[in-house]
Nucleic acid binder design. Structure first.
Lengths: 343, 343
DNA sequence: TTGAAAGCGTTACCAG
DNA sequence: CTGGTAACGCTTTCAA
């Protein structure tokens, strides 16, 4: 726990350059308008000489802003949300901010995480999580204390937060209509945890799609699952589905990984894809393109980009109203749904 | 850019509790041994009352340590290294540290990133990157200034840094021997960028494996590629490989994604896997298990875990010598190599 | 155009 | 056992 060897401070630089601390400070912060060329030169030389690096900690204390943003990510089964991290970090840094990353494993952990970020005095924070219903009172308090918050995939009803959400509803509706357009009349859907808002929206989209295609809704074709369901569970679901008197010719999986499992299961059962059964996923994970998987894209990176931009906007203009953005989930048509070149 | 409404400070608490600032500070930091129960109670009550949260910025300035660690990740094509982030964050937080995440897009960017972390006065930093040959002089300077550095996948020769590397050599050797043991005599390998150290090691492992299996080395079976090679490029490679007078019966892909492409290409050519051609990947990405892909695992999460533990160790005991750890890359035998239940 | 000095919120040392 | 007070490194205001 040894203290680090003292690095050069602003006063060292001032002394070396033979000027006052304020002048060095001004030089650092580009308030160079009213400064002799010579002084500036001397200061810069001294800084280089001493390998001076300003302390953002001290600066943070003095200015009451840290140039740091917080990102809280709920740890989920698939590393899906991690895809938002890279673009967020990029935009943050471009705007002169650093990123403090915190993982939250559950709701209580999230509170702790938020608290931590508050102690670190971040200038703003983003929270990305699954769409389970949650309490957001701690986040309201954060905003009340003056730290802007942007939410991804939370669908909080209050207009107070900047928010990005995905249009699961329309996405799945489009998917169903696409299948219907391909001639499918029995379209099954595997869904995740029912309490999750995304699940609800997808089911709505499913029904809406059927309706728009003049297809009847059949309870038997909806298989509830869970993100913790094992591959075995999903395989069983598939078998039951295919054992139906009138089995589905198309299956929408709850995510791309489940889709991959479904495809394997079907192949093991000797079914051809999409010949016997068409399949689509949800997510558009990186590997999906290599599977030729048709899927509904969840634009995670885009969500991150938009979230941080909203956040930055509001940090700079706290008086402006928060915005809610509903991101479209485009269909990515590849091979597993048929009708494509690879048919 | 409005200033945030002033939050309660330590002196507010002191005033409210009718004690001195020092006492509050002591209470916060658990130096509660020599304190009246009553004073403590009063202080705690005041803290709760005012919703007091200590400022880590101020504390950082006073203590010259920020309880923050930096993580520099080179942005790579596949999000492979992101798998290290979650475990690193977890361990960091458990140890009382926060994580500042910085993405570096290239070498120059890395310098900038490191500088940023230095300004933020992190107590230590980790760098994870591809194994291209690099200059590490800036990192040497960081350590010289007293900030410990741990490296993942850099294979720097100097003993000065804590380091985690993967034993690509042995891993690929094992893979080759596994194939040989299955009766394969023509084993092809697709490799990434040749200047990358991992590529070199894998080629060494490849040769060593052949030798150990008494198999001849055949230049034709080594297909150099590039992480930027398109799926088309890899398909062409496969076609050329299969057009050989004596075509391979087993293929080791340069990573799991390439393996997925290879598998698709083979399937499109009407080959069965592993019946006609066995395939293995390198990485063990999350999706690989759903493909039934046999692969050489790159224990990324484990590398992260070990790196941060080394780093923490050295932060607390700067006098101790840095350690180098070579992490084994175990084979994950699944279906695509044959010989397994799924044959 | 430059400099002195007062904060920023904590910790840590040293008297009382 | 408690309370002053001097750092910590920087920004900012106000004089000169």
């Amino acid at each position: 726990m040894a203290k680090r060897p003292n690095r050069a401070t602003i006063s060292d630089v001032a002394q070396a350059a033979g000027v006052s601390i304020s002048s060095v400070s001004n030089a650092i912060n580009g308030k160079t308008a009213a400064m002799t060329e010579e002084t500036l030169q001397r200061i810069q030389a001294a800084m280089r000489e001493l390998d001076y690096r300003p302390s953002s900690v001290a600066r943070g204390l003095a200015m009451q802003r840290t140039a740091t943003l917080g990102l809280v990510v709920t740890e989920i089964e698939t590393p899906l949300f991690l895809q938002a991290v890279t673009p967020i970090e990029r935009e943050a840094r471009q705007a002169g901010y650093s990123l403090l990353l915190v993982n939250a494993r559950n709701e209580e952990d999230e509170r702790e995480a938020v608290n931590l970020l508050l102690e670190k005095q971040v200038d703003g924070m983003m929270v990305i999580s699954t769409s389970d219903p949650r309490q957001n009172d701690h986040l309201h308090k954060v905003q009340a204390e003056g730290t802007p918050v942007a939410l991804i995939n939370r669908a909080d009803v209050s207009p107070e937060f900047d928010q990005i959400n995905w249009d699961n509803m329309t996405g799945v509706k489009d998917l169903v209509r696409h299948f219907a357009g391909l001639g499918h009349r029995r379209i099954a859907i595997l869904v995740g945890p029912v309490n999750r808002r995304s699940t609800q929206e997808r089911l709505q989209g499913y029904r809406a799609g059927l309706e728009a295609s003049l297809l009847p809704f059949d309870e038997d074709l909806v298989r509830p699952g869970d993100y913790t369901a094992t591959p075995e569970d999903w395989k069983n679901s598939i078998e039951e589905l295919l054992a139906l008197a009138s089995p589905p010719t198309a299956i929408i999986a709850s995510d791309d990984i489940v889709a991959a499992v479904v495809i394997r299961a079907l192949q093991e059962m000797g079914k051809s894809i999409p010949g016997d059964v068409a399949v689509a996923g949800i997510d558009d994970q990186p590997f999906s393109q290599y599977l030729g998987l048709t899927t509904m894209q969840l634009p995670v990176a885009e969500a991150g980009r938009q979230a941080i931009n909203l956040l930055l906007e509001r940090i700079h203009h706290p008086e402006k109203q928060a915005k809610h953005i509903l991101l479209p989930c485009p269909l990515v048509i590849r091979d597993t749904c048929g009708g494509n070149k690879a048919g």
